[in-house]
């Protein structure tokens, strides 16, 4: 890919991001933040690629940590977002919550 092609993609992606995301209601900002946070875990792909041509112990360590970090970012990010958004879905029957007898 030529540099100019990559820059074209970069600029268009930036506009797409602004367009898609600027319509999110405030309510969903924390989940959205968490979801986009998970998406930048895609850097793990870079870890998978560079570990392929790692050829000394230090590079093995760097690459493995990079993959582990990326995986935490991806797995944790999507799961936490899912938990947050689960809170918004209608629950069949609102349970009467704990600490029923508050009293003194």
């Amino acid at each position: 890919m030529s540099l100019m092609t990559e820059i074209t993609i970069f600029v268009l992606a930036a506009f797409v991001g602004f367009e898609v995301i600027s319509k999110v209601p405030t309510t969903l900002h924390t989940p959205l933040m968490s979801q986009t946070n998970a998406i930048h875990g895609i850097v793990m792909l870079g870890g998978l690629i560079v570990v392929g041509y790692a050829n000394d112990p230090l590079e093995y360590v760097i690459g493995t940590i990079a993959i582990a970090f990326g995986a935490i970012n991806i797995v944790g990010g999507f799961m936490v977002t899912d938990r947050m958004l689960g809170m918004f879905s209608k629950k069949p029957k609102p349970k009467a919550d704990a600490d029923g007898k508050g009293g003194s």
Binding site: M1, E6, I9, F10, A13, A14, F15, V16, G17, F18, V20, I21, S22, H29, L32, M33, T36, N37, I39, H40, I42, V43, L45, G46, I49, V50
Partner: peptide, 20 residues
């Protein structure tokens, strides 16, 4: 790394984070 997925996804996050 000449990786288009990284470029697009990273940029998407860049713009959303900026708005937020």
């Amino acid at each position: 790394l000449d990786n288009v997925a990284l470029i697009v996804a990273g940029t998407l996050v860049g713009s959303s984070g900026t708005i937020l």
